[in-house]
Write a protein that binds this DNA or RNA. Structure first.
Length: 868
RNA sequence: GGGCGAAUAGCUCAGCUUGGUCAGAGCGCCUGCCUUACACGCAGGAUGUCGGGGGUUCGAAUCCCUCUUCGCCCACCA
């Protein structure tokens, strides 16, 4: 324990070791409040649900940012005495994980169909077990103090129980239904996607104007962005009030290429302003067309295969063509037939698969849906009544808007990896019973006939939206559930506000009767210097583990916390880690060295001060510098605490940084050196004060920089490697410490010193030259200046008692005579710098002149008005 | 098409809710220092008409209007 501390702080030597000790001591594990065990009134627990990362994911800066923020909040509240539960888990992430394994299979020249469903799922399980949620271990490297003893996986059997329970309950309530709708289909993943999973992206495209020959002669021109879908047209629609087409309604056109007659219908969904005001209707490939088709009883003709090739319902020459290939061929043929009137550039939004970026195909298919409106109402009410708040606030309106316009949630996915839909169909002809069941069925509950389970699995979010209670044991009434639901804060990136956060609120309201948290803190996105989102595909990512390796976890955490204000993005330069993370590293090193200095100077006698105060007044043993640093410390406690409470983590970081570096290191430690060295009496008090203040600083900083603060804190007198700063109480604010007089007087001294220093700098005299007993090469009057400065630095600790009073009433601490005969006084009344004074007076004069001028102007205007 | 946010030193950003004492931080740059905790440091210094224009006010980075440029979210204009 007594090994000397290296002058260079080396995080790699302490971080892993400290983390292991924290885990071994069980310091991350939340204990359930045990009423009646005499532990006194337990504070209410503080609970954060970690957004479960994908099991197969690799740590990126987004995780780093997200989890650092959560860890800061958790550590803060834990020190404040609340039983803090940060509950981690991993998500099975249906599409993403299945894609990963399919890619591995592809390298072996196989597809999932070669293995078959059962073997494929087993293969994915093997993969997941093998990679072993490495992401969670990576979170440990950045210091995450999550309760690993409660880690869940969204495909665990206990989670499956919750999923089935929810599915069956909603089904029985009539909130889950199966239907034929246009859904977003990913032709590459071969599965349906929810609206949220189909990311809209503006893209330059074209608008083709195509002539559809009227059966009674002439043409009707329709505009389309996707000509290939015309092969599946079953009507043309116009607006009912559109005079141009009124008499055509009810007549037929001949669909080119497919050579089929199709009707012209009138529908209010058509915008007469757009294109030609006539729209081709393809009910199987467009949501609006689907609605029109339904209103008019039109057939839906699906012309594509699941992987978006033209199927057998199109003329033979198009069959098997990829949709974009088919588009080219269709356009070419139309052109040859003279049916292409014109083409114009057109910018429009296309949906892309959020996982593989493939352009989604709106496709008619039978899927399972959740009726969302009844679920959304209580979730919206929770926001409106203030039971749920957002930081930043404006996100609340986004949430409300989404809730108000909510659409049903397509929950079936044509994948194999996931929670299989707990629905069984009776295979006995004539029965056809459909049963949703909590238990696996082997026979139809209606007729006893053979049953077949639905082939599809549930959207991965169907398990994640239950996490706030399923991870605590729901549907059982477990002690954990009773103790830790509802939680407090949800910290996440805005991207998954609708995917996850909104749905968790809905599930919480529906199944637990209240939202799972009261605050949603949405932080920004990590971007590069060109404000592009960091991503693997762009190659502009920063590997947090590399940062940890080079600068330490504390430096990483400091950077992301200090670098981001509420509601803004975090910009980092992937090409210049030094610039981004050196401040954190430098700060850690500064703190380390301050600690080294303090610890190595505690050998001497320490006067244990039971309190710095006697009868509410500062003890007379405290010098001005002591009282000042205690007051600054008090201010830091208040500012940091308030900033943490308000999620202003950057403000907390800045306040603590400034206190430690500018106040404690730059001034106080310098000021007490003469006392510590024994040049001046009072060393024992200085030791007591500096220990106390340093202890507080470490505790304030601990949530942000847990490792270095722990390493230093354990070395303070009376502590051991077994004690942990994690269990140290949060510093309490003490109003007696505010001491405005000490602040004011010490600040005057600081000003005095700077004034003297700048005078010295201006005349180019180096401090080293002062050593020769006032003999300086510069103009001789300045030797007073040197003497004063050095004396001042040495004696900061002693000047609390009144200095001698000059003839004119000033209590001078230092005096400087300029070569022009003018003087700079430095006194406890005020540090007067002649230049500052002049500029102040000048500014005052300017202000008065401006005031007079504007008053005159006003007067003139009034006179003018009066005259007029 | 709607809604929202941002524009402050070379770079990354605070400050704006509650107008004056706020023009700031870190990095970078310049000068001088290896002063017995720290050169990942110390002490000084330069740099901004707070995006443009207008308004309210005795006074605006801060409030209002407008323009410009970026960015985000929502939306079934084929």
């Amino acid at each position: 324990m007594t090994e000397p501390l290296a002058p260079q702080y080396d995080p790699s030597r302490i971080e892993a070791d400290l983390y292991r000790r924290w885990v071994e001591a069980g310091l991350f594990e939340a204990r359930r409040p045990r009423p009646g065990r005499g532990r006194g009134r337990a504070a209410s627990p503080y609970v954060i649900m970690m957004p479960p990362p994908n099991v197969t994911s690799v740590l990126h800066m987004g995780h780093g940012l997200n989890n650092t923020i959560q860890d800061v909040l958790i550590r803060f509240e834990r020190m404040r005495g609340r039983e803090a539960l940060w509950l981690p888990g991993t998500d099975h992430a249906g599409i993403a994980t299945q894609n990963v394994v399919e890619r591995i299979l592809a390298r072996e020249g196989k597809t999932r169909f070669d293995l078959g469903r059962e073997a494929f799922v087993e293969r994915v399980w093997a993969f997941v077990r093998e990679t072993g949620a490495a992401i969670l271990d990576q979170l440990k490297a950045i210091g995450a103090s999550a309760d690993w003893s409660r880690t869940y996986f969204t495909l665990d059997p206990r989670m499956s129980r919750a999923v089935r329970e929810v599915f069956v309950r909603l089904y029985e309530k009539g909130l889950i239904y199966r239907g034929n709708y246009i859904i977003n289909w990913c032709p590459r993943c071969l599965t349906a996607l929810s609206n949220e999973e189909a990311e809209k992206e503006e893209q330059d495209g074209r608008l083709w104007h195509v002539r559809y020959p009227l059966e009674r002669g002439g043409h009707l021109v329709v505009a389309t962005t996707r000509p290939e879908t015309m092969l599946g047209d079953t009507a043309v629609a116009v607006h009912p009030d559109d005079a141009r087409y009124r008499e055509l309604v009810g007549t037929m056109v001949r669909l080119p290429l497919a050579e089929r007659p199709i009707p012209i219908v009138a529908d209010p969904g058509v915008d007469p302003e757009f294109g030609t005001g006539a729209v081709k209707v393809t009910p199987a490939h467009d949501p609006l067309d689907f609605e029109i088709g339904r209103r008019h009883g039109l057939p839906a003709l699906d012309v594509m295969t699941p992987d978006a090739r033209m199927n057998d319902d199109v003329p033979e020459r198009f069959r098997g063509l990829d949709r974009f290939e088919a588009r080219k061929r269709v356009v070419e043929e139309l052109e040859r037939l003279g049916l292409l009137e014109r083409v114009e550039a057109h910018r429009h939004a296309v949906g892309r698969c959020y996982r593989c970026d493939t352009v989604v195909e709106p496709r008619l298919s039978e899927q399972w849906f959740v009726r969302m409106k009844p679920l959304a109402e209580p979730a919206l009410a929770a926001y409106r009544t203030g039971k749920l708040r957002f930081i930043p606030e404006r996100r609340g309106e986004e949430y409300a808007q989404w809730m108000e316009n909510i659409r049903d949630w397509c929950i079936s996915r044509q994948l194999w990896w996931g929670h299989r839909i707990p629905v069984w169909y009776c295979e006995r002809p004539g029965c056809g019973k459909v049963t949703a069941s909590r238990e696996d069925l082997t026979a139809c509950p209606g007729c006893g006939g053979p049953v077949r389970q639905d082939e599809d699995v549930l959207d991965t979010w169907f398990s994640s939206w239950l996490v706030p209670f399923s991870s605590l044991g729901w549907p059982d009434r477990t002690p954990d559930l009773a103790a830790f639901y509802p939680g407090d804060v949800l910290v996440t990136a805005p991207e998954i506000l609708f995917f996850w956060v909104a749905r968790m609120v809905m599930a919480g309201c529906e199944f637990m009767g209240e939202p799972p948290f009261h605050t949603v803190y949405l932080h920004g996105t990590v971007r590069d210097t060109q404000h592009r989102k960091m991503s693997k595909s762009l190659g502009n990512g920063i590997d947090p583990l590399e940062v940890v390796g080079r600068y330490g976890a504390d430096a990483l955490r400091y950077t992301v916390v200090a670098g981001m204000a509420v509601g803004t993005d975090l910009i980092l330069d992937p090409k210049d880690l030094e610039t981004s993370f050196a401040p954190g590293r430098n700060f850690a090193n500064k703190l380390w060295n301050a600690g080294r200095f303090i610890l190595s100077n505690l050998d001497g006698p320490v006067r244990p001060l039971p309190s710095f105060y006697r009868d509410g007044r500062p003890s007379p043993e405290l010098t001005l510098a002591d009282r000042w640093i205690i007051a600054r410390c008090e201010r830091a406690v208040v500012e940091a605490t308030e900033a943490y409470e308000r999620f202003r983590l950057n403000e907390a970081a800045n306040a603590i940084y400034h206190f430690i570096w500018s106040d404690l290191a730059d001034w106080y430690i310098e000021a007490i050196k003469p006392r510590l060295y024994g040049d001046v009496p009072g060393g024992e008090v200085a030791r007591a004060v500096v220990t106390q203040v340093f202890d507080v600083a470490l505790r304030l900083l601990h949530p942000i920089m847990p490792f270095i603060t722990e390493a230093l804190w354990q070395r303070l007198p009376g502590r051991s490697a077994r004690s942990s700063i994690m269990r140290a109480p949060w510093p309490r604010s003490d109003r007696r410490a505010e001491d405005p007089a000490a602040l004011r007087e010490f600040e005057l001294l600081q000003e005095a010193v700077s004034a003297i220093r700048s005078i010295r700098a201006e005349y180019g005299v180096a401090p080293g030259q002062q050593v020769e007993a006032g003999v300086t090469p510069g103009p001789s009057p300045f030797r007073h200046v040197f003497a004063a400065e050095w004396e001042l630095l040495r004696r900061l600790a002693k000047v609390a008692s009144p200095a001698p009073v000059d003839g004119d009433g000033r209590r001078s601490v230092a005096t400087a005579v300029l070569s022009d005969g003018s003087e700079v006084f430095v006194s406890l009344e005020g540090a007067i710098d002649i230049r500052r004074e002049c500029s102040r007076l000048n500014a005052e004069r300017q202000r008065l002149l401006a005031l007079i001028e504007s008053q005159e102007k006003k007067l003139r205007n009034e006179q003018f008005v009066t005259r007029a």
